[in-house]
Design a protein around this nucleic acid. Structure first.
Lengths: 340, 340
DNA sequence: CGAAAAAGCCAAAGCGCTTTGGAAGACTCT
DNA sequence: AGAGTCTTCCAAAGCGCTTTGGCTTTTTCG
């Protein structure tokens, strides 16, 4: 059942039927009702391929997925997707993942906008002065950045969490508890979130006249093993830290294992706070010692990004508004006063 | 730069240019070279929207993503995606995720095939007599099932691992080590993989005249917490098992925690084997006691599924061939002889 | 050499929708 | 009543590609 048939069956022109269906004003309400009714009765659904050829609208949002044998997709991605998908569903939006060579995403971005394959895109895990952001900005496709990039001569729209604030609070708590030597086990420090977190910790320390030793900050891929290694290295030194801030729950698993392997205890010998993106399958309260966390649901972020993308596509949202969500600090058993 | 312009600039008809570009035989090789050359020089790329309207081909593979506030996407998904994406990239295929109400995926399947939004789809985490498989089969779109469904009066194409064999081997090893009371901490037993794994364990036990007590098999969502709870329940009983087979590394985290909480040890009091889908961020050799596993890379499976989908789309693969991959049993420190 | 076959190209008709540019009729207003 | 204005609808022209059917020209072969 296509438009032509439907129009013929109603003894109307395609024009009128199309307009009736799409809510244009120049059609009699009575006629519109007839059309709507017939369309529903016959289960008419406009062919999206045809519509997109005619209008350029696709009803899809895009994401360029870096791939490669040595490229691991962040497990957070799936939670983000979960929120994004949940919102997208309610607005009949699909998500298209365009796999790209991790070292050449530009080609893919250019392709999907030149081909008008999607109505909008989002970008995640941005770095400062992220090339993707600059590119997408000049290409002129609506977009939202999940996270933040910095140092451009233009503004853009993003949704981020207050990473600096979160880690500032975490560090401040540890300092208040008497800790003087903090360590930070961070994610890839080429990414903005990691830079912000480090900045947060440094700021808290500075406020008390303390500093973050270079040897006490690690920047690694967020795996359990890296959490373990970093912790061993940190705790086997002479001026071992008495408190650790950690950028992910998965790394925290490794931290806990390392501490145990060294015959130390949490929080007796070392306090631990980790960032929690809220996985359904690994919860900080279920760690052997319940883990203090800075918490922010990445799933909610996904839903929000989808919402904003939808708004931009339909022209409801414009401009370069960036929004920063506060992060909860949830104190559990893994922190205590500094050992004497 | 569209076809019309290119044709005009070459003083050829659109027909000829189109055919030259698409490798049709009825065009002079000399002409084809000229066309190819001009196309490359001017960076001509056929408009996919137009092409798909004309041909129905989209260059996309589809996946219906169940969503909802209470629906969690399996963290394995991201690894699978990683492999899928890596292959898809090399074949210029995109992946479209169509979010669907978890309780009504049928509508979405019908939509994406009625609208011809994708060339093929894949289905994951199937159940026996899975409705999606039946649906997609009748809808007539090319598809591959990752995993297996059973009990249909038709055959279909799937790629699965030998879950039964894997858990049979695991159980057999444990039995050989003298264990008599095994337990299975399984995933959702409405899914085929879980059924197969249970069957594998039972078969191994039966071969030695043993059985799997109903109280010793749990079917839960694969979270750390559920692994913990199941283990506590199991080990606090009178006839506690001396060995546990576990369906995921994440649950195994909970198992290990529970065992420790109970003041028991692995493998002294209880042996443990878990299935490992090979996450980059959590490795069995890094468990406090290195974990024995049945191992199968879900990423490779993703790549394979993509490969087969691509083959089906281009007509290189037909028929209902199912393939079953063997699973490695990797023995590490978490298994030992049964306690006396 | 002439008929049949093959090679090489083209015009035009889709694919199914949106949108432009009218046009006919109804209504308003002076 | 005639001019101007809405209201409501339509025919047709795209969107950019593929593909059908046919028309020349060249090649093949008895």
């Amino acid at each position: 059942m296509n438009l032509k048939q439907l129009a013929h069956m109603l003894a109307l022109s395609q024009t009128t039927v199309s307009r009736a269906l799409n809510g244009y004003p120049e059609v009699n309400e009575e006629t519109r009702r007839r059309v709507m009714d017939a369309a529903k009765r016959h289960g008419y659904r406009p062919n999206p391929s045809a519509r997109r050829l005619a209008t350029g609208k696709t009803g899809m949002i895009g994401y360029v997925l870096p791939t490669g044998a040595s490229v691991d997709i962040d497990p957070h991605f799936v939670e983000f997707l979960s929120g994004l998908g949940d919102y997208a569903r309610s607005h009949e939006l699909d998500l298209v993942l365009s796999p790209a060579d991790a070292d050449d995403q530009e080609t893919t971005y250019r392709r999907i906008v030149a081909n008008r394959q999607v109505d909008a895109v989002y970008i995640s895990s941005p770095r400062p002065v992220d090339r993707r952001v600059a590119l997408v900005n000049t290409l002129g496709i609506p977009f939202i950045v999940h996270g933040r990039s910095e140092g451009f001569d233009f503004d853009y729209a993003f949704t981020d969490i207050d990473n600096e604030g979160a880690f500032h609070e975490a560090a401040r708590l540890l300092i208040q508890l008497g800790h003087r030597r903090l360590a930070l086990i961070n994610g890839d420090d080429r990414e903005t979130f990691a830079i912000h977190r480090e900045r947060g910790v440094r700021r808290a320390l500075a406020a008390s006249g303390l500093t973050l030793s270079e040897r006490h900050v690690c920047s690694v891929d967020m795996t359990e093993e890296n959490g373990y290694r970093a912790t061993r290295r940190l705790l086997e030194e002479d001026d071992a830290p008495t408190a650790i801030a950690c950028s992910s729950l998965i790394m925290a698993l490794g931290v806990v294992r390392a501490v145990r392997d060294l015959g130390l205890s949490i929080p007796g010998d070392v306090s631990l706070i980790a960032h929690d993106d809220v996985f359904p399958w690994l919860r900080p309260e279920n760690f052997s010692v319940p883990l203090s966390t800075t918490r922010s649901s990445i799933r909610l972020a996904g839903a929000r990004v989808a919402e904003r993308l939808a708004a931009r596509i339909s022209g409801l949202e414009e401009g370069a508004r960036g929004e920063v969500w506060p992060v909860d600090l949830v104190v559990r058993g893994s922190v205590a006063g500094a050992p004497v």
